[in-house]
């Protein structure tokens, strides 16, 4: 019984890890850049939804949709306005640009919304699921349902649409894909849009889950999402989701032990070190 309940916690946590890391792995798959500012997009999503909820409407779905659309656009803007000009340079250039951008975004959130934690008031009509073996609260249920829906949608886009095909072509060889008639600019922009919208959604869901929005909420996410991407095998969407779940299960299981006092966020790195030592292409990577 206790184990099942812990698995529910892990599933919810893993769902959010996957949702954030998927966008990162998609960007890496195509452009081969480490998009640190992705975690800034996650925070932006939470703040946008909070703004919508406290000023425009109390409808969570509307807030979520608006936040996702706006973070998607922000992602495109970051690509077209910033990364685009660094792609022909050494890979270290977009990386440093990305770190700078992330820091700037965090400071911007702090200056605009204040350094405090804001509560995240949201109402939605889901029940709490009570079974003899485990309890799933309405917030957890919402996260699980929405994540599943997003992932099914992503799967369909990746495998059943022309855009998905274009992304696959781009990830194999960007120049070749362009030469074969793929509109690379559009393909990459859409990739950023979708990945960023998912990160924005993750930010909203996390804000809801913890009832908290604050400028530095992306800090831990920034590096943990990378661990998930590496574990999942750079650029693999399916691997990334599995890795997110696996990391969450390990964290939750170890965290539930009374004697285990190692910080949760260090577990990710411990796992990362082990994987890089023994399986450098990632747990689920095809090289």
């Amino acid at each position: 019984m206790a184990v099942l309940q812990q698995l529910i916690f892990a599933l919810v946590l893993g769902a959010t890890y996957g949702l954030i890391a998927v966008g990162l792995t998609m960007v890496y798959g195509i452009l081969k850049i480490l998009h640190v500012a992705h975690a800034g997009i996650y925070t932006l999503g939470a703040y946008l939804a909070l703004y919508v909820l406290s000023h425009l409407t109390d409808n969570l779905w509307a807030a979520l949709a608006m936040a996702m659309f706006a973070t998607g656009l922000a992602g495109v803007l970051i690509y077209r306005g910033i990364y685009y000009y660094t792609l022909r340079r050494s890979r270290i250039v977009p990386l440093i640009v990305s770190i700078g951008l992330f820091t700037a975004m965090n400071e911007l959130f702090r200056l605009v919304a204040g350094p405090y934690q804001h509560s995240f008031p949201a109402k939605f009509g889901l029940p709490t699921l009570i079974t003899p073996y485990f309890v799933v609260t309405s917030k957890q249920l919402l996260i699980l349902i929405l994540t599943a829906a997003f992932l099914v949608l992503l799967y369909l886009i990746l495998n059943k649409t022309k855009v998905g095909l274009a992304w696959q072509a781009c990830s194999q060889d960007l120049e070749m894909a362009g030469a074969m008639g793929v509109n690379v600019d559009w393909a990459v922009a859409l990739n950023f849009f979708l990945g960023s919208a998912l990160a924005g959604a993750a930010g909203v869901l996390m804000a809801l889950y913890r009832n908290m929005v604050y400028p530095t909420m992306g800090h831990v996410v920034a590096y943990k999402a990378f661990v998930v991407v590496v574990l999942g095998g750079f650029g693999s969407v399916r691997g990334c989701i599995l890795a997110g779940l696996l990391l969450a299960v390990v964290e939750t299981f170890l965290g539930s032990l009374e004697w285990f006092e190692f910080p949760r966020d260090a577990i990710a790195f411990l796992v990362l070190i082990l994987v890089l030592m023994f399986r450098p292409k990632g747990l689920f990577g095809r090289l």
């Binding site: 812990q6 916690f9 946590l13 831990v220 965290g255 539930s256 009374e258 006092e261 949760r264 966020d265």
Partner: peptide, 22 residues
Amino acid sequence: VFEKRYSLGESEFREVLSSMWL
């Protein structure tokens, strides 16, 4: 009956709390 340390910045306590409650 239960004693555990957690690191500053931790925001997920559900698993600790449920094993504590046992």
